[in-house]
Simulated scan of single mutants.
Amino acid sequence: MSPPETVHVPLDGGRAYDILVGRGLLAEVGARCAALGARAVAVVTDTTVAGLYGEAVRASLEAAGLRAALVAVPPGEGSKSYATFTEVCDALLAHRIERRDLVLALGGGVVGDLAGFAASVLRRGVRFVQAPTTLLAQVDSSVGGKTGINSPHGKNLIGAFHQPSLVLADTAALDTLSAREMRAGYAEVAKYGLIDDPAFFAWCEANFSEIFSGGPARDRAVASCCRAKAGVVVRDEREDGERALLNLGHTFAHALERLTRYESARLVHGEAVAIGLALAFRFSARLGLCPGQDAGRVANHLALAGLPTTLRQVPGGCGDADQLLDAMRQDKKVRDGALTFILARGIGRSFIAPGIEPEAVRAFLAEELG
C-alpha cells in the first residue's frame, strides 16, 4: 500500500497540523492518536458509521494503550441540534475526557461539525482529530476548523473556530458510500475548480468517473482539494476575506436546506450545493458578469455527474422566491442586512460580491422557479 500523501496546514501559535490522505488510514488511528500524547480518546460517530468502523477503531485505539469510548448519534443533519450537542457534551464528560485527551470525529460532515463544536467548548477547549468517512467531509468540512450546529433560523449559525490536531482522510472508507453520497460529495470537489482553478475543473470533467470508482484519481482529487482549502485557511482562518470564496453556491444551498427542513430524504448538503453552484453561475450570467456558455458548462457537468442543478428538482418544492430570499437573509455573509454572494466572471474566476440588490435576487429566483 502506498504511503499517504501529507498536506501540511502551517497555522501559527502551535496549531499547525497535517492532513493525511490515502487508503487504510483508519487502521492506523490508534498509533496516530497515541503519537499526539493523549491518554484517552472519545470517538464521536453516528450509528451507521459505528456499525461499519466503530469497533475496529476502538480496537486500534486500545491496542495503542489508549482508553477508548464510543459516542454514537443518529445519522443525518438532524443531529446538528442543541439537544444532540448537549447529549454529546455530557457523554464526553461522563467518559472523563480531559484537555490533553482527544475527541475523534469519525464520520461525515455532520459528525465532524458536531464533535468539533463539542470539543471546542468542553473544559473550554479539548483537542480533536477528524477522521472523515465521506467524500464531502474529506475535501471540505474536516479541514479548516469550522465547527457548529444548526438553528431553526439557519444552518451553522451556532459554532466556533476550533482547528483539529490531525485529519485522517482514509479514501478506502469511501468504498462503502452510496452512489448518492458520492455524487453529493463530488459537488464540493468541483467547487474548488470553479472558485479559482479552471485547470482542476477541466481535470474533473475528464476524470470524475474514476473519482467515483476509486482509482488513483480519487486520492488525487481529495489531496488537491485539501491542499487548496489549507492554503485559503492559512491566509484567512476566520473568514474575514478570501475564505468566503469557499462558500461559492452555499448562500443558495443553505437557504434550500433550511426550507426543506434539513430532511436528507429530500435534499442532502452536496445536492443543495450542486444546485447552488449552478444558480450562482446562472445568476452571474444574468447580471452580465459571466459568459452564458460557462454557466451552461457548469450545469452540464454537474448533471452528467448525476447531480440536480435547478430549483425545480428539489423534491417537494422549496417555497417561492420570497421564502428563498428570506432564508438567505440569515446567511453568515450578510453585513448590515445586505446580501453578499459569491459570484463568478467565468469558470475559475469567482469573487465576493457584497450589497447585491434583493430585487435582483428575487427576480432571478422567480424566473428559476417559473
Score class of each variant (00 low, 15 high):
L61V: 02
G78C: 06
T48P: 10
T84S: 03
A69P: 04
A72W: 00
R67G: 13
A64P: 02
A59L: 12
T86M: 05
A56S: 12
Y82L: 15
K80M: 02
K80G: 03
S60Y: 05
A72N: 03
S79F: 07
P75T: 00
G65C: 04
E77H: 11
T45N: 03
T47L: 13
P74M: 06
A50Q: 14
V44N: 02
G54H: 11
T84V: 13
A50K: 07
E77L: 06
E77Y: 07
T47K: 11
E55S: 12
S79E: 05
V44Y: 07
T48Y: 11
A56E: 15
V57C: 08
T86Q: 12
V43A: 00
S60M: 05
Y82F: 11
V44R: 10
T48I: 00
A69F: 14
Y82T: 08
A69M: 02
G78V: 01
T48E: 15
T47R: 15
A63T: 03
G78E: 12
L70R: 04
A68D: 09
Y82A: 13
S60R: 09
R58L: 15
S81L: 03
Y53K: 05
G65D: 12
A63L: 04
P75F: 10
L52Q: 12
A56K: 15
T45K: 03
L61Y: 12
A50M: 10
V71Y: 09
L61N: 03
A59T: 11
S81I: 05
A56R: 15
V44H: 07
S60G: 14
V49R: 08
A68W: 12
D46Y: 04
V71T: 01
A63D: 04
T48L: 14
A56W: 15
P75V: 00
T84F: 08
T86I: 00
G51P: 13
T86F: 06
E62M: 13
L66F: 05
V49S: 09
A83G: 07
L66G: 05
V44L: 03
